[in-house]
Design a protein around this nucleic acid. Structure first.
Lengths: 190, 190
DNA sequence: AAATGACCAAAATGTTCATTTAGTCATAAA
DNA sequence: TTTATGACTAAATGAACATTTTGGTCATTT
């Protein structure tokens, strides 16, 4: 990949993380990347596409990390937990996702809203794949994979994000227990 | 209760349902209720308190309906389902709650946001009570009632509201099955 | 052929000011 | 006296206009 392109991505990532999407100007990005503004437009057709490309890399990175957390000697239940835990730890600790989620909450910038929705959808699709694999192998009983992945994801959001709005945060250990108790026990083969 | 007070409540409820909280003026309410504007302030200390009072009645009404859905000859699982189903049917069909939830989404009026948050909190508290009763009777195994009620509520929101944003709505029958399969099976005594 | 920054239309932002509105209170009705 | 009222006020809102900023283009330079 072109060196300039890399500089631009790096500068934009830094600026989006620091100031958010809306507050980042293309002049700003050009200056930080040490390129002319026009150069940005030889690699990306708009500011929005620049954001989309960056978030696509983030998505790949998250999937890579989730995959790395999976250990094929462990059960489906344990692995789906480990993967979801990695996904949500990333969301909570990665500067860019923190800032963009804030921006959606506080300003509601449409471009950012869309891109974060895509991130959620892709994470659900990722979980769905794992479920389909486990079903094919007979590790779990048959179920609607889309619906199951959706519920797992929503439950993780409830435990990791929503609960903290009105209560003490739950430790990861506790979240894992609850997820297992409430969601997986009902799903595993008898 | 004073006749005038009743007229005011009725007029305000109608106007909030029709135009929303922000777009309703106190002059409007006074005119619809056939009272002078000052009269409203002999019963309610502010527009916000008027809304709060109305929502308090709504909350009572929902609890009453949920209670009516409960049949003590049935199991805890069945009853908690029936109660939650009534609660969410109400949310989805009652003009005022529809309009107020819209207003929170589209405008984010703080007074309305707060009052709808209270509604959620009270519904969770209601479910929590049912869980505590069932635990005391030994109908379900021991668990954190607040956390369990919270998860049940979130799961119902996921199935009733969130799922529809990107998929075909689920019939109530299917929602009941899923709730039972995923959440309750893990909780019931073995 | 690749990179640039001056340039432009359009969008965002700041400013002003007339209108609207929540809430008060002196007065009137009961 | 008690209850009800609507004219009134201070604050909030938003329409209209001026100014600035910014995403994106393209003629020029390297």
């Amino acid at each position: 990949m072109s060196e300039k392109r890399k500089q631009i991505i790096e500068a934009a990532t830094k600026s989006f993380s620091l100031f958010g999407y809306k507050a980042t100007t293309m002049d700003q990005v050009a200056k930080m990347a040490n390129v002319g503004k026009g150069t940005i437009y030889t690699f990306f057709k708009s500011k929005e596409e620049l954001l989309e490309d960056i978030v696509s890399s983030i998505i790949s990175e998250i999937k890579r990390e989730a995959d790395a957390a999976i250990d094929h000697r462990l059960s489906f239940n344990e692995n789906v937990q480990r993967a979801l835990q990695r996904i949500f730890t990333f969301r909570k600790e990665h500067e860019l996702t923190i800032k963009l989620l804030q921006e959606v909450r506080d300003i509601g910038t449409p471009a950012v809203r869309d891109v974060m929705k895509r991130l959620d959808r892709e994470m659900i699709a990722y979980v769905r794949e794992k479920i389909e694999e486990a079903m094919a192998k007979g590790e779990i009983r048959s179920c609607d994979p889309e619906l199951t992945a959706f519920l797992m994801f929503k439950m993780y959001i409830a435990l990791n994000v929503d609960w903290e709005k009105e209560h003490e945060p739950l430790p990861q250990q506790k979240i894992a227990e609850l997820f297992d108790l409430y969601l997986l026990k009902g799903l595993s083969r008898r």
